[in-house]
Simulated scan of single mutants.
Amino acid sequence: MDQLIKILKHDDEMVVSGRDLHDFLEVDTPYRIWIQRMIEYGFHENADYISFEQKSTKPQGGRPQVGHALKLDMAKEIAMIQRTDKGKGEYSYISTRVKHAVNGYIDIHHLVLNRKQRGMLYKDISRGLNEVTGVKTRTQLRKKDFDTADEFVTNWVPSTATLQIIKQLSDVPEGQTELIRR
């Protein structure tokens, strides 16, 4: 998966820079105010994040800035509660993962599919995603559904019924049973 924000390892934990997340989400509020508001959502120092001093990026020097190493779960939750386009994390992240899962399946199996056949794969993954998270549409995914949705997409393979329908939709001459392969 393409990384949107650099992930670092700290004491065997995967973390992201709070400042990098702030910049990525394009938050208008200054970092020092924004991060304090985010921490108030119930996150705890040394459990969900670590504070540390950073050298000032100003050429004249100045007081050290306080930075934060956020564990991935905290970073995901913060991204999901933002009111920016990039911050609508649960929907946009899962949508990107769905696209990668479908395209990955097509690439791994060297399939050449028409639009309708691709659509069947998207319907299959969306139907399963909605079923395991208990929502009617992907836009209804919420923070509590995120891990379940992410795990489902990671492990998704099309159903036998979907694969059979895709075969029926192909322009393969009668009697040939395999999907068109590159």
Results as ranks from 00 to 15, higher is better:
H10I: 07
E77S: 07
K123G: 03
A69M: 15
T177N: 11
M120T: 10
Q164N: 13
L169N: 06
V15W: 06
Q54R: 15
T162D: 08
T160D: 14
I50S: 03
I33D: 11
S159R: 01
K9R: 14
D147P: 00
D124G: 08
M120A: 14
N103G: 05
K9W: 08
M38T: 05
H68A: 00
E40A: 10
T177L: 14
H100E: 15
V102K: 08
F24E: 05
A79E: 04
L4G: 02
I106W: 09
L121F: 13
I165H: 14
G119D: 04
D145C: 01
H10F: 14
D124L: 03
L4E: 09
T57H: 11
E151Y: 04
L4R: 08
I50F: 10
V112S: 09
K123L: 11
Y93K: 04
Y31E: 10
V98Y: 13
V66A: 03
L4N: 12
F24V: 06
I7K: 14
T160R: 15
H44S: 12
K55Q: 14
D73P: 00
A75H: 06
P30A: 15
Q60P: 01
S92G: 05
D73E: 12
Q176K: 13
D11P: 00
Q36L: 09
I94A: 09
V98R: 15
K71G: 02
Q117R: 06
S95D: 13
D85V: 06
I81N: 08
A75N: 03
V153Y: 01
E77K: 14
Y41N: 12
S170T: 14
A69L: 15
D48H: 06
N114W: 08
K167I: 05
Q82E: 15
Q3G: 04
I33L: 09
D28Y: 03
